[in-house]
């Protein structure tokens, strides 16, 4: 399918070397539209919405922020560590949103399992349903998120973004 100039620019922004060293698409051979569509289906199959996932990730980042890099306990056996860096990164989707360069790690103290996300991940999930491509250093896998955080579905279904 032919891409519009806007879509082409977004894909360029998501590629390596534009906004981050390795980009946001990883080694994923799928098109951006396919990546978003497949993740939308996965999120739906988990009984969740992009907003519910983004809301939970954002809440955990806010929980961990006062720790200034020190682990902050969450629930019985999870802990949240927030590391922030100097600088701002714009959203590659050309929506004029800019996020601080902040990384949140949520770790299970019992198993050692960990998931991680950036403030930009949270925005891209909520606003664009984009979790990054497979093999991307900062892909947020909805199934892994749900396995660790057991996010409660929204009480009422939200409109689909796809």
């Amino acid at each position: 399918m032919k891409q519009s100039p806007e879509q082409r620019e977004i894909e360029e922004n998501l590629g390596p070397g534009a906004f981050s060293a390795d980009g946001f698409l990883g080694s994923d051979p799928r098109s951006l539209a396919d990546i978003i569509r497949d993740d939308q289906a996965l999120v739906k199959s988990l009984g969740l919405t992009h907003q519910a996932i983004a809301r939970q990730l954002g809440a955990l980042t806010r929980l961990g922020l006062p720790g200034l890099g020190t682990p902050v306990p969450y629930g019985d056996h999870l802990e949240v560590i927030v590391m922030d860096y100097r600088g701002i990164i714009p959203c590659p989707f050309r929506d004029n949103v800019r996020e601080e360069k902040r990384l949140t790690v949520c770790r299970d103290r019992l198993t050692g399992d960990a998931i991680r996300w950036t403030d930009l991940n949270v925005h891209m999930i909520a606003a664009h349903g984009f979790y990054e491509g497979r093999g991307s250093p900062f892909r947020v896998d909805p199934a892994e998120v749900q396995a660790m955080l057991s996010i409660q579905p929204d009480p009422e279904p939200e409109n689909s973004e796809s």
């Binding site: 070397g17 981050s20 060293a21 390795d22 860096y85 600088g87 360069k101 990384l103 250093p137 900062f138």
Partner: peptide, 11 residues
């Protein structure tokens, strides 16, 4: 210079 994960310049 502190390494920013995925940072273009710090990498």
């Amino acid at each position: 210079v502190r390494q920013v994960p995925e940072g273009i310049c710090t990498t």
